[in-house]
Amino acid sequence: MTVDSIKNGIVIDHITAHKGMKIYELLNLDRLNASVALIQNAPSRKNGRKDIIKIDTDFEVNTDILGFVDPNITVNVIREGKIVKKKTLELPERLKNVIKCKNPRCITCTEQEIDHIFTLADKENRIYRCLYCESAAK
């Protein structure tokens, strides 16, 4: 399968296979007025299979979302057809409006206007806790 290479934009590479669609949705790429390619199950030397997203425009990618969903991802910034920057990701310390608190007793479940904020409580086990009620993200 061939997908045209892009001139100026972003390539989100090394996405764990089958997580591409989730990232596509979380980044709201369906709202973008540019060519976007989601490639699923592409062969990968590192992991066997991977997903890739190519975005054919300048796009401020939310690395918190990417780092939370899949910290193995690399983000390549393309200018004039060449990779000018390669970003590796880490688990973000703080997540804002990426996930929602599921605790029915939490104030964020009653008041819709409040930002859903989670902080990284345990890096090793990837546990995030709600800023307001301290419930673990599920």
């Binding site: 007793r105 939490c106 104030i107 008041e111 800023l131 307001y132």
Partner: peptide, 10 residues
């Protein structure tokens, strides 16, 4: 005092 957790933080 509030029945919802986190309300005083808000």
């Amino acid at each position: 005092r509030h029945p919802k957790e986190g309300a005083p933080l808000v």
